[in-house]
């Protein structure tokens, strides 16, 4: 087992290199990070050139990547932009935990992300809880009452919801619960931001603002997950050991939730584990619609302004999270199903 974990971790290293290199090249050669500098007053051509030189944007791309990776404190760089290297660089590189400085805010990339991470986690974790509870309830219910009216209803609904793009679902929810509810004189829900600026940030405010975006994320995943849970539950319910459990007189509840559910939860673990990092990425769209000040919205903003440091840092964190999640799933699997062994 330990050998397996170590091997997987070693395999992840070249993978991260490839991913970072490709994205770095795509980012550094697209758009002009200086385009939005100076606001309405574009910098003069010679200032611009000096700025490019001092930011290191004129270096060959492989050198920029090496600086990003291992830092540039071992080499003389041109910090004044006059074409002459004058002092040692100050960047320490990703390998030593320095993800560079945002070209827009001039803060360390990690700090830019850290400020938003909490907001995204509040949104995605709430959504995740709704997803797991909702999908388990609907999935198990449909499996136990197979071919009942409710089962058919949930099947049809999940097929429809699964085909709706997230942003459209968000718009529909806003239209119903904010626009129409206001017209009908019902208590309506807020649609933008995390809290009312006048009321200030409080638990109640954030909770109210959380309802629509978290439901938007949750609905689509529930539609997908509940189908999986239904089919694995059905498979397990019809297996011999469940018949045995019933035959020896266990209560239906104990049979379903202790004996059947443990084995039926295996595919669910995979799904949740693999989707968790993607959920954070998927929040891009939801956060844009609901103006939620999280990482997803930040990603779009910084991508549009070619802020390589922040975009790279975010993508690396998410990629690492995906790899770790996969490893964790493999480990949890051996615990849930002792028949599975690695090595």
């Amino acid at each position: 087992m330990y050998k397996y974990i170590i091997r997987r971790l070693l395999q992840a290293i070249p993978l991260l290199f490839v991913v970072s290199f490709v994205i770095f090249i795509l980012m550094q050669s697209s758009g002009d990070p200086l385009a939005t500098m100076g606001g309405r007053m574009p910098p003069r051509a010679e200032d611009r050139e000096r700025l490019r030189q001092s930011l290191g944007l004129n270096d060959p791309i492989y050198l920029q990547y090496i600086y990003w990776l291992v830092g540039n404190d071992w080499r003389m760089v041109d910090s004044t932009g006059d074409g002459e290297p004058d002092r040692y660089g100050t960047r320490r590189g990703v390998i030593r935990g320095d993800f560079g400085t945002s070209i827009i805010t001039r803060q360390p990339a990690m700090q830019v992300i850290g400020d938003r991470l909490e907001n995204t986690l509040i949104l995605t974790m709430t959504a995740q809880v709704i997803i797991i509870v909702g999908a388990l309830f609907i999935g198990i219910f449909s499996a136990v009452r197979q071919y009942s009216i409710w089962d058919h209803l949930f099947t049809t609904l999940s097929f429809i919801i699964y085909s709706i793009p997230v942003f459209l679902l968000g718009i529909i929810l806003i239209y119903i619960f904010a626009v129409q509810f206001r017209i009908w004189g019902l208590p309506h829900l807020p649609t933008a931001g995390m809290y009312d600026p006048i009321e200030g940030r409080s638990f109640g405010q954030v909770a109210r603002h959380l309802v629509l975006p978290s439901l938007t994320i949750a609905f689509i995943s529930i539609a997908g997950y509940s189908r999986y849970i239904r089919s694995t539950m059905l498979e397990v319910i019809n297996s011999d050991y469940i018949r045995t459990a019933r035959a020896k007189g266990l209560t239906e509840r104990r049979t379903l939730f202790v004996h059947a559910f443990k084995n039926a939860s295996l595919p669910l673990i995979t799904l949740i584990g693999l989707d968790l990092p993607l959920l954070i990425a998927g929040a891009v769209v939801t956060e844009t619609i609901f103006a939620w000040p999280g990482m997803g919205k930040m990603f779009i903003d910084h991508l549009n302004r070619s802020d390589t440091a922040v975009v790279m840092a975010l993508l690396m964190i998410i990629t690492l999270a995906v790899i770790m999640a996969q490893l964790l799933i493999d480990i949890v699997y051996t615990w849930l199903d002792p028949r599975i062994r690695y090595d």
């Binding site: 994205i23 891009v284 769209v285 991508l303 998410i318 995906v322």
Partner: peptide, 10 residues
């Protein structure tokens, strides 16, 4: 291992 939507945007 790169989320598809983010890769697509980049």
């Amino acid at each position: 291992s790169i989320p598809t939507l983010l890769l697509l945007l980049v």
